[in-house]
């Protein structure tokens, strides 16, 4: 009995640690986003609160927490409150299977990739329910757009992952990362290059970030699905969106860029010079790069039109993935060197 309780306590501590770090990351990601966008647009960005504006995220959080939550009279009360909880819950629960380094993971399950896919497909319900429960035209349009978009891009994402699963022969994240061992050229971004690009693009679409943010579309439908939300309820949606961004970046680095593996593996001298760096540093560096690209894309591209999004998803990304799955299947079957020689 004592042992069971001890185990439970340990798990709870791990969960709290992951969530705390995640929330802090999200808080500073918003700050970082405003800074990066500022410099892209030749501004300085927030610099008033604290030294160089470093306390800005806390000011934002306090502001959002103190605001009143307005529940529209015509809305569906319970679902209205439930929707942001679904959004945040699914995006945080997915972190339970992400390994940060070899055997540093909360739940090392065999079907990790599938678990992530299933949870990310649940995430759209937060948006869908929010849009419907608000009982507002703009919110409704946002929800419908989000539903159509997420279905289209989830298929591409799933198929891109099928390629990774076949290449690694496993659905466990640790096995997938370890299968990429052997230097930059052995990471899956090269043999699975089309899948890597498709996964990246649909990852951006999946998180409803620019240029795929038709579900929010400030200039078209005000704020889309969360137009009726305020205060903490809005903050939850905001948190969920940014937590999802971090999650997708982590997934891309794990599945296609070798996770915690050092990029200097197999290179003489460099490998030994950098051997003191713990794997988690490489992992976080890769993750941060993809986060930066998220913001970079936002500062660069205009929003896609709805029909263009559908066209890109169904007519370009999906055929590319299906063709490349066949290619990967062939390569795995005939043990094409150097990647699939087993």
């Amino acid at each position: 009995m004592m042992e069971g309780l001890l185990l439970l306590g340990l798990i709870v501590i791990k969960i709290v640690a992951i969530i705390l770090v995640l929330l802090l990351t999200v808080a500073y990601l918003t700050f970082f986003e405003r800074k990066v966008l500022g410099y892209i647009q030749v501004r300085i960005g927030p610099n008033r609160v604290g030294p160089r504006g470093l306390f800005q995220p806390f000011a934002d959080i306090i502001k959002l927490l103190c605001k009143e939550i307005i529940i529209p009279n015509a809305s569906n009360r319970y679902l209205f409150i439930f929707a942001p909880i679904i959004s945040l819950g699914t995006s945080i629960a997915a972190w339970s299977v992400i390994p940060f380094q070899k055997s540093i993971v909360l739940a090392d399950i065999n079907a990790g990739v599938l678990f992530i896919l299933a949870l990310s497909s649940l995430g759209v319900y937060g948006i869908l329910i929010a849009g419907w429960a608000s009982n507002s035209k703009y919110a409704m349009f946002g929800a419908l757009r989000a539903a159509a978009q997420s279905i289209s891009y989830e298929i591409c994402m799933g198929f891109a992952l099928v390629g990774v699963m076949m290449a690694a022969g496993s659905l466990n994240f640790q096995t997938i990362v370890m299968a990429q061992e052997g230097g930059v050229w052995h990471w899956y971004w090269l043999p699975l290059l089309p899948l890597f690009l498709v996964y990246w693009i649909s990852g951006v679409a999946e998180t409803n970030r620019l240029p795929f943010d038709v579900a929010e579309g400030e200039s078209e439908i005000v704020a889309g699905f969360h137009v009726e939300y305020s205060g903490t309820a809005f903050a939850l949606f905001f948190l969920a969106e940014y937590a999802n961004m971090v999650l997708i970046s982590a997934l891309i680095s794990l599945l296609f860029l070798g996770g915690w593996l050092s990029p200097f593996q197999g290179i003489p001298y460099l490998e030994t010079w950098f051997s003191f760096v713990p794997g988690i540093v490489w992992f976080l560096l890769k993750l941060s790069f993809f986060l930066l690209v998220y913001l970079w894309i936002r500062g660069t591209f205009p929003r896609y039109r709805y029909d263009q999004i559908m066209r890109l998803g169904w007519k370009i990304l999906l055929p590319v993935t299906i063709v490349w799955i066949v290619v990967v299947a062939m390569a795995v079957q005939f043990n094409v060197a150097p990647w699939f020689a087993s």
């Binding site: 065999n110 079907a111 299933a118 539903a147 279905i151």
Partner: peptide
Amino acid sequence: AEFLALILVLVYVGAVMTLFLFVVMM
């Protein structure tokens, strides 16, 4: 049966029911 369980969530909850709701909402 974790494979079937997760596929149930992925296919039925993630795709089929989203399409259902899409139609029913309208």
